[in-house]
Computed example of a mutant assay.
Amino acid sequence: MVKVLFVCLGNICRSPMAEAIFRKKVAEAGLEKDFVIDSAGTGDWHIGNRPHDGTLKILKDNKVDSENMLARQVKKEDLKQFDYIIAMDAENLGNLNRMKGYGESGEINRLLDYIPESKVVDVPDPYFTGNFEEVYELVEEACKQLLTHIKKHKL
């Protein structure tokens, strides 16, 4: 099993969007039995909440399932249990690297690292920008590239 965890700040916009999109891509590839996919936030403000209305709308508009998703906070154990810990931006990446300390952890990267030609390095936070369409397009392409990367290196 390949375990993938998407991480943003509050786990209501970017990381649940990435989780849902990646789940869809994995299902379309017929690989559901080979993956565990989840998302979490570095902050605790939204624990137990559904994704942001903007995230839910853009996912629905693109026929991506978002059922049964609730925000949670990333835990130190997650860093040992997941093979790929995917941060949405440099701040999340820094927080994750500080959390991991000297213990073993999965591969920690930013999501847009999987789009080599991308001029954008951080997924913008639509909670502040309101631009859920831009975020969806970036996340959708990066998830496609991430799945290609994992199939090449892990499956």
Rank of each mutant, 00 (worst) to 15 (best):
K3F: 00
K3Y: 01
K3A: 13
V4T: 13
V4N: 11
L5W: 06
L5I: 09
F6V: 06
F6I: 04
L9W: 12
L9S: 15
N11K: 07
I12E: 08
C13N: 13
S15L: 02
I21M: 03
I21F: 00
R23V: 03
R23H: 04
V26P: 07
A27I: 05
E28R: 04
G30A: 04
G30V: 02
G30L: 01
E32C: 04
E32V: 08
D34M: 05
I37E: 06
D38H: 08
S39V: 05
S39E: 09
A40M: 07
G41M: 03
G41F: 01
T42Q: 05
T42M: 02
T42K: 04
G43R: 05
G43L: 02
W45H: 13
W45F: 10
W45Q: 12
I47M: 01
I47R: 04
G48A: 04
G48C: 02
N49V: 00
R50K: 12
D53I: 02
G54Y: 04
L56C: 11
K57T: 10
K60D: 15
D61G: 05
K63A: 14
V64L: 02
D65L: 08
E67A: 13
M69R: 14
L70W: 03
L70G: 08
V74I: 13
V74Q: 10
K76S: 15
D78K: 14
D78F: 10
K80H: 09
K80I: 04
Q81F: 03
Q81P: 02
Q81H: 05
F82E: 15
D83T: 13
Y84D: 11
Y84P: 11
Y84T: 11
Y84G: 13
Y84V: 07
I86T: 09
A87Q: 09
M88S: 11
A90I: 05
E91F: 01
L93A: 13
L93H: 14
G94W: 00
G94A: 10
N95P: 02
N95G: 07
N95R: 03
L96N: 13
L96G: 12
R98D: 14
R98P: 09
M99L: 11
K100A: 15
K100H: 10
G101W: 00
Y102K: 14
G103C: 06
G103I: 02
G103R: 02
E104H: 12
E104W: 00
E104Q: 11
E104N: 15
E104P: 14
I108C: 11
N109P: 01
R110S: 04
R110E: 12
L111V: 02
L112W: 03
D113P: 05
D113H: 11
Y114C: 01
I115L: 13
I115W: 01
P116E: 07
P116Q: 05
P116V: 05
V120C: 08
V120E: 15
D122I: 02
P126I: 00
P126R: 00
P126K: 04
Y127Q: 03
T129P: 14
G130I: 01
G130T: 06
E133W: 00
V135Y: 01
Y136V: 07
Y136Q: 09
E137I: 02
E137Y: 01
E137L: 01
L138K: 06
V139T: 15
V139Q: 12
E140T: 06
E141T: 14
E141G: 08
K144M: 00
Q145C: 03
L147F: 06
L147A: 06
T148V: 12
T148E: 12
T148H: 08
H149D: 14
I150Q: 09
H153K: 12
K154S: 15
L155P: 15
